[in-house]
Simulated scan of single mutants.
Amino acid sequence: MAKSRWRRLLFVFVVMAILLGVPWWTLLWAGTAWPTAVVIAGTVVFVAVFVGLPVLTMLGHGRRHLDWAAITADVLLGVAWVLFVWSVLGQLLGLVLWVAGVEDPARSRLIAGAVLVAVVALLAWGHFEAMRLPRIKDVDVVLDRLGAGLDGLRVAILTDTHYGPIDRARWSAAVVDRVNELDADIVAHVGDVADGTVALRQAQAAPLAAVRSRHARVYVTGNHEYFSEAQGWLDHFTQIGWDVLHNKHIVVERGGDKLVVAGVDDRTARASGLDGHGADLDTALRGADPQLPVLLLAHQPKQVTGAVTAGVDLQISGHTHGGQIWPFNLLVRLDQPVVHGLSRHGRRTQLYTSRGTGFWGPPFRVFAPSEITVLTLRRSASSADSGPGRRR
Protein backbone atom coordinates (compact mmCIF):
# COMPACT_ATOMS: atom_id res chain seq x y z
CA MET A 1 0.00 0.00 0.00
CA ALA A 2 2.82 2.38 0.92
CA LYS A 3 4.67 1.54 -2.32
CA SER A 4 1.54 2.25 -4.35
CA ARG A 5 1.14 5.64 -2.68
CA TRP A 6 4.75 6.57 -3.34
CA ARG A 7 4.39 5.54 -6.99
CA ARG A 8 1.36 7.80 -7.35
CA LEU A 9 3.19 10.69 -5.71
CA LEU A 10 6.21 10.14 -7.93
CA PHE A 11 3.99 10.13 -11.02
CA VAL A 12 2.30 13.38 -9.92
CA PHE A 13 5.62 15.14 -9.35
CA VAL A 14 7.06 13.91 -12.66
CA VAL A 15 3.99 15.22 -14.51
CA MET A 16 4.21 18.54 -12.66
CA ALA A 17 7.92 18.81 -13.39
CA ILE A 18 7.21 18.45 -17.12
CA LEU A 19 4.14 20.71 -16.97
CA LEU A 20 6.10 23.51 -15.31
CA GLY A 21 9.56 22.73 -16.63
CA VAL A 22 8.78 23.32 -20.30
CA PRO A 23 7.35 26.83 -19.67
CA TRP A 24 10.24 27.64 -17.32
CA TRP A 25 12.73 26.67 -20.05
CA THR A 26 10.82 28.54 -22.76
CA LEU A 27 10.23 31.77 -20.85
CA LEU A 28 13.37 32.08 -18.73
CA TRP A 29 16.28 29.98 -19.88
CA ALA A 30 16.36 28.81 -23.50
CA GLY A 31 18.58 31.43 -25.06
CA THR A 32 16.65 34.42 -23.70
CA ALA A 33 19.66 35.80 -21.80
CA TRP A 34 17.46 37.71 -19.38
CA PRO A 35 19.15 39.57 -16.50
CA THR A 36 19.99 37.28 -13.59
CA ALA A 37 17.42 38.94 -11.31
CA VAL A 38 14.64 38.16 -13.82
CA VAL A 39 15.68 34.50 -14.09
CA ILE A 40 15.88 34.11 -10.30
CA ALA A 41 12.52 35.80 -9.68
CA GLY A 42 10.82 33.72 -12.38
CA THR A 43 12.36 30.50 -11.08
CA VAL A 44 11.14 31.26 -7.56
CA VAL A 45 7.60 31.62 -8.92
CA PHE A 46 7.76 28.28 -10.76
CA VAL A 47 9.21 26.48 -7.71
CA ALA A 48 6.52 27.99 -5.48
CA VAL A 49 3.83 26.68 -7.83
CA PHE A 50 5.53 23.27 -8.00
CA VAL A 51 5.51 22.98 -4.21
CA GLY A 52 2.23 24.76 -3.50
CA LEU A 53 -0.05 23.22 -6.10
CA PRO A 54 -0.20 19.71 -4.55
CA VAL A 55 -0.68 21.17 -1.07
CA LEU A 56 -3.48 23.48 -2.18
CA THR A 57 -5.12 20.63 -4.11
CA MET A 58 -5.18 18.41 -1.02
CA LEU A 59 -6.54 21.23 1.15
CA GLY A 60 -9.17 22.19 -1.41
CA HIS A 61 -10.31 18.87 -2.84
CA GLY A 62 -9.47 16.62 0.10
CA ARG A 63 -11.48 16.05 3.25
CA ARG A 64 -11.20 19.65 4.45
CA HIS A 65 -12.93 21.11 1.36
CA LEU A 66 -11.36 24.56 1.79
CA ASP A 67 -12.89 26.38 -1.16
CA TRP A 68 -10.27 29.15 -1.27
CA ALA A 69 -7.53 26.53 -1.61
CA ALA A 70 -9.49 24.63 -4.27
CA ILE A 71 -10.02 27.79 -6.33
CA THR A 72 -6.34 28.73 -6.12
CA ALA A 73 -5.19 25.22 -7.04
CA ASP A 74 -7.65 24.97 -9.93
CA VAL A 75 -6.61 28.33 -11.39
CA LEU A 76 -2.91 27.43 -11.09
CA LEU A 77 -3.52 24.07 -12.76
CA GLY A 78 -5.33 25.72 -15.65
CA VAL A 79 -2.62 28.34 -16.09
CA ALA A 80 0.09 25.66 -15.96
CA TRP A 81 -1.64 23.55 -18.63
CA VAL A 82 -2.15 26.46 -21.03
CA LEU A 83 1.44 27.65 -20.44
CA PHE A 84 2.75 24.16 -21.16
CA VAL A 85 0.76 23.73 -24.38
CA TRP A 86 1.70 27.10 -25.81
CA SER A 87 5.31 26.77 -24.73
CA VAL A 88 5.49 23.57 -26.77
CA LEU A 89 3.90 25.37 -29.71
CA GLY A 90 6.35 28.21 -29.13
CA GLN A 91 9.19 25.82 -29.96
CA LEU A 92 7.63 25.36 -33.40
CA LEU A 93 7.67 29.14 -33.80
CA GLY A 94 11.33 28.99 -32.82
CA LEU A 95 12.05 26.67 -35.75
CA VAL A 96 10.39 29.11 -38.13
CA LEU A 97 12.42 32.01 -36.73
CA TRP A 98 15.59 29.95 -36.89
CA VAL A 99 14.97 29.15 -40.56
CA ALA A 100 14.32 32.86 -41.11
CA GLY A 101 17.77 33.61 -39.68
CA VAL A 102 16.69 35.26 -36.40
CA GLU A 103 19.44 34.73 -33.81
CA ASP A 104 19.30 34.44 -30.03
CA PRO A 105 18.55 36.14 -27.73
CA ALA A 106 16.11 37.94 -30.04
CA ARG A 107 14.62 34.64 -31.23
CA SER A 108 14.03 33.20 -27.76
CA ARG A 109 12.70 36.51 -26.46
CA LEU A 110 10.22 36.70 -29.34
CA ILE A 111 9.07 33.18 -28.52
CA ALA A 112 8.69 34.01 -24.81
CA GLY A 113 6.73 37.16 -25.61
CA ALA A 114 4.46 35.39 -28.09
CA VAL A 115 3.77 32.59 -25.60
CA LEU A 116 2.89 35.04 -22.81
CA VAL A 117 0.57 37.07 -25.06
CA ALA A 118 -1.18 33.92 -26.30
CA VAL A 119 -1.57 32.49 -22.79
CA VAL A 120 -2.94 35.70 -21.26
CA ALA A 121 -5.41 36.14 -24.12
CA LEU A 122 -6.59 32.51 -24.02
CA LEU A 123 -6.96 32.47 -20.23
CA ALA A 124 -9.01 35.68 -20.26
CA TRP A 125 -11.24 34.40 -23.05
CA GLY A 126 -11.38 30.90 -21.55
CA HIS A 127 -12.52 32.25 -18.18
CA PHE A 128 -15.26 34.27 -19.87
CA GLU A 129 -16.38 31.14 -21.74
CA ALA A 130 -16.43 29.08 -18.53
CA MET A 131 -18.46 31.59 -16.53
CA ARG A 132 -20.90 32.65 -19.23
CA LEU A 133 -24.43 31.34 -19.67
CA PRO A 134 -24.14 28.31 -21.98
CA ARG A 135 -25.29 28.54 -25.58
CA ILE A 136 -28.29 26.54 -26.74
CA LYS A 137 -27.25 23.77 -29.12
CA ASP A 138 -30.06 22.28 -31.24
CA VAL A 139 -29.62 18.78 -32.64
CA ASP A 140 -32.12 16.65 -34.56
CA VAL A 141 -31.90 12.90 -33.92
CA VAL A 142 -33.70 10.48 -36.23
CA LEU A 143 -34.87 7.29 -34.51
CA ASP A 144 -36.16 4.43 -36.63
CA ARG A 145 -38.55 3.09 -33.98
CA LEU A 146 -40.03 6.42 -32.93
CA GLY A 147 -43.82 6.54 -33.15
CA ALA A 148 -45.61 9.32 -35.02
CA GLY A 149 -46.99 10.79 -31.79
CA LEU A 150 -43.44 11.32 -30.49
CA ASP A 151 -42.13 13.00 -33.63
CA GLY A 152 -40.70 16.37 -32.61
CA LEU A 153 -40.38 15.50 -28.90
CA ARG A 154 -37.73 17.79 -27.39
CA VAL A 155 -35.20 16.75 -24.74
CA ALA A 156 -33.22 19.49 -22.96
CA ILE A 157 -29.91 18.28 -21.55
CA LEU A 158 -28.03 19.60 -18.55
CA THR A 159 -24.89 17.82 -17.45
CA ASP A 160 -21.65 18.43 -15.59
CA THR A 161 -22.89 21.53 -13.79
CA HIS A 162 -20.18 20.86 -11.19
CA TYR A 163 -21.41 23.28 -8.55
CA GLY A 164 -18.22 23.76 -6.60
CA PRO A 165 -15.79 26.13 -4.86
CA ILE A 166 -16.76 29.14 -6.99
CA ASP A 167 -20.23 30.27 -5.95
CA ARG A 168 -22.35 30.13 -9.11
CA ALA A 169 -25.82 30.39 -7.57
CA ARG A 170 -26.79 33.29 -9.88
CA TRP A 171 -25.41 31.40 -12.88
CA SER A 172 -27.41 28.34 -11.84
CA ALA A 173 -30.63 30.37 -11.63
CA ALA A 174 -29.95 31.88 -15.07
CA VAL A 175 -29.38 28.40 -16.54
CA VAL A 176 -32.71 27.23 -15.15
CA ASP A 177 -34.46 30.31 -16.57
CA ARG A 178 -33.01 29.54 -19.99
CA VAL A 179 -34.08 25.88 -19.78
CA ASN A 180 -37.61 26.89 -18.81
CA GLU A 181 -37.79 29.20 -21.83
CA LEU A 182 -37.24 26.14 -24.02
CA ASP A 183 -40.52 24.54 -22.87
CA ALA A 184 -39.00 21.08 -23.42
CA ASP A 185 -40.93 17.83 -23.16
CA ILE A 186 -38.18 16.20 -21.10
CA VAL A 187 -35.38 17.81 -19.11
CA ALA A 188 -32.45 15.55 -18.25
CA HIS A 189 -29.51 16.10 -15.91
CA VAL A 190 -26.88 13.52 -16.84
CA GLY A 191 -24.72 13.66 -13.72
CA ASP A 192 -21.81 15.44 -12.05
CA VAL A 193 -24.22 17.90 -10.53
CA ALA A 194 -21.76 19.14 -7.92
CA ASP A 195 -18.41 18.70 -6.24
CA GLY A 196 -19.32 18.30 -2.61
CA THR A 197 -22.25 17.27 -0.48
CA VAL A 198 -25.81 18.52 -0.77
CA ALA A 199 -25.34 20.61 2.37
CA LEU A 200 -22.18 22.18 0.96
CA ARG A 201 -23.63 23.01 -2.50
CA GLN A 202 -27.31 23.48 -1.65
CA ALA A 203 -27.41 27.18 -2.53
CA GLN A 204 -26.06 26.59 -6.03
CA ALA A 205 -28.22 23.54 -6.72
CA ALA A 206 -31.43 25.07 -5.32
CA PRO A 207 -32.64 26.56 -8.67
CA LEU A 208 -32.94 23.05 -10.14
CA ALA A 209 -36.16 22.66 -8.16
CA ALA A 210 -37.74 25.28 -10.45
CA VAL A 211 -36.96 23.44 -13.72
CA ARG A 212 -40.11 22.91 -15.79
CA SER A 213 -40.90 20.29 -18.43
CA ARG A 214 -44.02 19.03 -20.19
CA HIS A 215 -43.58 15.35 -19.35
CA ALA A 216 -40.56 14.49 -17.18
CA ARG A 217 -37.49 15.72 -15.33
CA VAL A 218 -34.92 12.93 -15.03
CA TYR A 219 -31.53 12.58 -13.34
CA VAL A 220 -28.69 10.06 -13.13
CA THR A 221 -25.46 10.12 -11.17
CA GLY A 222 -22.05 10.98 -12.57
CA ASN A 223 -18.67 9.92 -11.24
CA HIS A 224 -18.27 13.05 -9.10
CA GLU A 225 -21.32 12.21 -7.02
CA TYR A 226 -19.34 9.20 -5.82
CA PHE A 227 -16.57 11.46 -4.54
CA SER A 228 -18.96 12.94 -1.96
CA GLU A 229 -22.45 11.55 -1.28
CA ALA A 230 -24.20 9.98 -4.26
CA GLN A 231 -27.18 8.79 -2.23
CA GLY A 232 -27.59 12.27 -0.79
CA TRP A 233 -27.89 13.74 -4.29
CA LEU A 234 -30.34 11.03 -5.34
CA ASP A 235 -32.46 11.82 -2.29
CA HIS A 236 -32.23 15.55 -2.99
CA PHE A 237 -33.47 15.19 -6.57
CA THR A 238 -36.31 13.00 -5.37
CA GLN A 239 -37.28 15.63 -2.79
CA ILE A 240 -37.43 18.40 -5.42
CA GLY A 241 -39.68 16.31 -7.65
CA TRP A 242 -37.34 14.87 -10.27
CA ASP A 243 -37.49 11.25 -11.46
CA VAL A 244 -34.27 9.65 -10.23
CA LEU A 245 -33.27 6.96 -12.72
CA HIS A 246 -31.19 4.88 -10.32
CA ASN A 247 -31.03 1.83 -12.59
CA LYS A 248 -34.69 2.22 -13.49
CA HIS A 249 -36.93 3.59 -16.22
CA ILE A 250 -40.11 5.55 -16.75
CA VAL A 251 -42.40 5.65 -19.77
CA VAL A 252 -43.27 8.93 -21.46
CA GLU A 253 -46.38 8.99 -23.64
CA ARG A 254 -47.37 11.58 -26.21
CA GLY A 255 -49.86 11.41 -29.04
CA GLY A 256 -50.64 7.79 -28.26
CA ASP A 257 -47.01 6.63 -28.62
CA LYS A 258 -44.59 5.72 -25.86
CA LEU A 259 -40.90 6.21 -25.15
CA VAL A 260 -38.92 4.35 -22.50
CA VAL A 261 -36.62 6.76 -20.64
CA ALA A 262 -34.08 4.76 -18.67
CA GLY A 263 -31.05 5.63 -16.59
CA VAL A 264 -28.10 3.84 -15.03
CA ASP A 265 -25.58 4.75 -12.36
CA ASP A 266 -22.16 5.97 -13.42
CA ARG A 267 -19.71 3.22 -14.32
CA THR A 268 -17.59 4.08 -11.23
CA ALA A 269 -20.51 3.50 -8.87
CA ARG A 270 -19.82 -0.16 -8.14
CA ALA A 271 -16.18 0.50 -7.28
CA SER A 272 -17.29 3.15 -4.78
CA GLY A 273 -18.49 0.38 -2.47
CA LEU A 274 -21.76 2.23 -1.83
CA ASP A 275 -24.43 -0.35 -1.11
CA GLY A 276 -27.02 -0.68 -3.86
CA HIS A 277 -25.06 1.35 -6.41
CA GLY A 278 -23.56 0.18 -9.69
CA ALA A 279 -24.55 0.55 -13.33
CA ASP A 280 -27.10 -2.16 -14.18
CA LEU A 281 -28.84 -1.72 -17.52
CA ASP A 282 -30.70 -5.02 -17.26
CA THR A 283 -32.35 -3.83 -14.07
CA ALA A 284 -33.02 -0.41 -15.57
CA LEU A 285 -34.93 -1.94 -18.49
CA ARG A 286 -36.67 -4.69 -16.55
CA GLY A 287 -40.38 -4.72 -17.35
CA ALA A 288 -40.05 -2.34 -20.31
CA ASP A 289 -41.82 -3.25 -23.55
CA PRO A 290 -38.99 -4.40 -25.88
CA GLN A 291 -40.88 -2.98 -28.87
CA LEU A 292 -40.69 0.58 -27.56
CA PRO A 293 -37.82 2.95 -28.41
CA VAL A 294 -35.39 3.51 -25.54
CA LEU A 295 -33.71 6.76 -24.49
CA LEU A 296 -30.92 6.02 -22.01
CA LEU A 297 -29.15 8.40 -19.64
CA ALA A 298 -25.62 7.22 -18.80
CA HIS A 299 -23.00 9.70 -17.63
CA GLN A 300 -19.96 8.35 -19.50
CA PRO A 301 -19.88 7.80 -23.27
CA LYS A 302 -18.02 4.51 -22.83
CA GLN A 303 -21.18 3.07 -21.28
CA VAL A 304 -22.55 2.91 -24.83
CA THR A 305 -21.10 -0.61 -25.16
CA GLY A 306 -23.84 -1.95 -22.91
CA ALA A 307 -26.42 0.21 -24.66
CA VAL A 308 -25.56 -1.36 -28.01
CA THR A 309 -25.92 -4.84 -26.55
CA ALA A 310 -29.31 -3.95 -25.05
CA GLY A 311 -30.58 -2.42 -28.31
CA VAL A 312 -30.95 1.09 -26.90
CA ASP A 313 -31.99 3.63 -29.54
CA LEU A 314 -30.31 6.74 -28.10
CA GLN A 315 -27.89 7.23 -25.21
CA ILE A 316 -27.25 10.67 -23.74
CA SER A 317 -23.94 11.26 -21.95
CA GLY A 318 -21.68 14.02 -20.66
CA HIS A 319 -18.46 13.61 -18.66
CA THR A 320 -15.94 14.67 -21.33
CA HIS A 321 -16.52 18.47 -21.21
CA GLY A 322 -15.41 18.37 -24.85
CA GLY A 323 -11.88 18.40 -23.43
CA GLN A 324 -12.60 21.73 -21.66
CA ILE A 325 -9.13 23.19 -22.33
CA TRP A 326 -7.64 22.41 -25.73
CA PRO A 327 -5.89 20.12 -26.56
CA PHE A 328 -6.97 18.02 -23.59
CA ASN A 329 -9.67 16.61 -25.87
CA LEU A 330 -6.95 14.45 -27.44
CA LEU A 331 -6.26 12.85 -24.05
CA VAL A 332 -9.98 12.40 -23.37
CA ARG A 333 -10.25 10.48 -26.64
CA LEU A 334 -7.82 7.90 -25.24
CA ASP A 335 -10.36 7.05 -22.53
CA GLN A 336 -13.73 7.65 -24.20
CA PRO A 337 -15.10 6.57 -27.61
CA VAL A 338 -16.44 10.08 -28.31
CA VAL A 339 -15.49 13.55 -27.07
CA HIS A 340 -18.65 15.39 -28.12
CA GLY A 341 -21.53 15.36 -30.58
CA LEU A 342 -23.80 12.77 -32.17
CA SER A 343 -22.35 9.40 -33.16
CA ARG A 344 -23.63 5.99 -34.21
CA HIS A 345 -22.67 2.71 -32.54
CA GLY A 346 -23.78 -0.62 -33.91
CA ARG A 347 -26.84 -0.97 -36.14
CA ARG A 348 -29.37 0.83 -33.94
CA THR A 349 -27.75 2.81 -31.14
CA GLN A 350 -26.88 6.48 -31.38
CA LEU A 351 -24.98 8.43 -28.74
CA TYR A 352 -25.10 12.12 -28.01
CA THR A 353 -22.20 13.39 -25.89
CA SER A 354 -22.60 16.88 -24.44
CA ARG A 355 -19.66 19.20 -23.82
CA GLY A 356 -21.31 19.96 -20.48
CA THR A 357 -23.16 22.90 -19.00
CA GLY A 358 -20.56 23.97 -16.45
CA PHE A 359 -16.88 23.21 -15.91
CA TRP A 360 -14.74 21.22 -13.52
CA GLY A 361 -11.60 22.43 -11.76
CA PRO A 362 -9.82 25.18 -13.71
CA PRO A 363 -12.38 27.94 -14.45
CA PHE A 364 -11.46 28.03 -18.12
CA ARG A 365 -12.93 26.67 -21.36
CA VAL A 366 -10.68 26.93 -24.39
CA PHE A 367 -12.08 25.79 -27.77
CA ALA A 368 -14.68 23.67 -25.92
CA PRO A 369 -17.76 25.84 -25.30
CA SER A 370 -20.37 24.84 -22.75
CA GLU A 371 -23.86 23.97 -23.90
CA ILE A 372 -27.46 23.38 -23.00
CA THR A 373 -28.45 20.85 -25.61
CA VAL A 374 -31.91 20.42 -27.11
CA LEU A 375 -32.34 17.09 -28.86
CA THR A 376 -35.38 16.99 -31.11
CA LEU A 377 -36.40 13.39 -31.78
CA ARG A 378 -37.53 12.77 -35.33
CA ARG A 379 -39.29 9.84 -36.89
CA SER A 380 -37.37 8.31 -39.78
CA ALA A 381 -38.70 8.65 -43.32
CA SER A 382 -38.92 4.87 -43.67
CA SER A 383 -41.12 4.66 -40.55
CA ALA A 384 -43.36 7.44 -41.83
CA ASP A 385 -43.73 5.70 -45.19
CA SER A 386 -44.76 2.46 -43.50
CA GLY A 387 -47.87 4.03 -42.04
CA PRO A 388 -49.04 5.62 -38.79
CA GLY A 389 -47.09 5.01 -35.62
CA ARG A 390 -48.09 2.07 -33.47
CA ARG A 391 -50.55 2.92 -30.69
CA ARG A 392 -49.88 1.31 -27.34
Score class of each variant (00 low, 15 high):
T373I: 04
L331G: 09
W242V: 05
P388T: 07
A230D: 02
G113H: 11
W29V: 15
W98Y: 08
I157D: 01
H249C: 04
V190S: 07
G306Y: 00
R107S: 10
L10F: 11
V47G: 03
P362W: 02
R344M: 00
D185T: 04
R347E: 15
H127L: 10
F227H: 13
V39F: 09
I136D: 13
D104S: 06
H345W: 07
Y163A: 14
A106R: 14
D266S: 02
P337A: 09
F84E: 03
V14H: 07
V264L: 08
R392Y: 14
L92T: 13
T309F: 00
I372D: 06
N223R: 04
R64E: 02
I186D: 09
T159N: 11
A106H: 11
V115L: 13
K3L: 14
S380T: 10
G356I: 08
V260M: 02
V55R: 11
G126R: 10
V88C: 15
L208F: 15
P362A: 15
R217E: 04
T221C: 01
D104R: 07
L351P: 10
S108Y: 09
A33G: 08
D335K: 06
L331A: 15
A188W: 01
A188H: 05
V85A: 12
I40N: 00
V79Q: 03
V260G: 00
P293M: 01
S228T: 14
G78H: 09
L53P: 00
G361L: 03
F13P: 12
V79S: 01
D275G: 14
R214M: 04
A384Q: 15
I40S: 01
F328A: 15
T373H: 01
S354Q: 06
D289A: 06
V115I: 13
V117P: 00
A118N: 11
R333Q: 10
W25M: 00
L10D: 01
R390D: 10
A199T: 14
A206L: 04
L116T: 13
L351Y: 00
L123V: 03
Q231N: 12
T32Q: 13
T26H: 05
R154M: 09
G78C: 09
V82P: 14
S382N: 10
I71W: 12
G60N: 05
G276V: 08
L351Q: 06
T305E: 15
E371T: 06
L150Y: 00
R379W: 03
T221V: 01
G149D: 01
D67F: 12
A194W: 04
S317R: 07
W233M: 05
T376G: 07
